[in-house]
């Protein structure tokens, strides 16, 4: 799966108006509800790098002061960087790097089709449980569109993985033969 580009997301959030680190973290976790929550340290470290590169600039201090209360604003260069990033199409799955895939192959190398099948079945169960959990999140009447769209993303990927797990279960015996021929 393609990783989230945290610097660009922070720039995007700053495009709505200047904020300090704490507000940025809150906005991030709210808008990307199914992402791994940002640690404060990560926010400040990222802001530091963005400032060094001239993409954000300090825009003032909150009343109570302190380094954590510095407000940051998007610079012109930051806006340009964002536009470039948005114009760039992500490479569609350039490598097949899934651990799921690797595990089945290694199971076939070190053991047999049965071992691979056991793993596939266990993984399928875990995927199914997670799919059900996310479907519940999505159908909860209090879910916001942020929640729904984020859950949708995960559900679509789990669904694709599950199809692959099903098909591979059917093929694992033949695959084992090929690996060992």
């Amino acid at each position: 799966m393609i990783g989230v580009s945290t610097p660009h997301v922070l720039l995007g959030l700053l495009a709505q108006g200047s904020r300090h680190g704490y507000e940025l973290k809150r906005a991030h976790d709210q808008r990307l509800p199914r992402a791994r929550p940002l640690a404060f340290g990560q926010v400040y470290a990222t802001l530091g790098r963005l400032q060094r590169d001239g993409l954000v600039a300090p825009a003032g201090q909150d009343r109570d002061g302190g380094p954590d209360r510095t407000t940051y604003a998007l610079t012109g260069a930051g806006r340009d960087a964002l536009d470039l990033w948005l114009a760039e199409v992500e490479p569609p799955l350039p490598y097949v790097t899934s651990t799921l895939f690797a595990k089945v192959l290694v199971a076939l190398l070190v053991a047999d089709a049965e071992r691979a099948r056991e793993y596939l079945v266990a993984q399928r169960r875990a995927h199914t449980d997670r799919l059900r959990e996310l479907t519940a999140v999505k159908t909860d009447p209090s879910a916001t569109l942020d929640d729904v769209v984020a859950a949708d993303f995960a559900i679509a990927h789990l669904d694709a993985d599950l199809r692959w797990l099903h098909t591979t279960l059917e093929r694992v015996a033949d695959w084992h033969r090929e690996v060992h021929s």
């Binding site: 199914t128 799919l131 059900r132 996310l134 669904d159 599950l162």
Partner: peptide, 12 residues
Amino acid sequence: HEPRVAGYADRE
């Protein structure tokens, strides 16, 4: 036959 539809159920 669709995993994502089965996700709506309590049990499969």
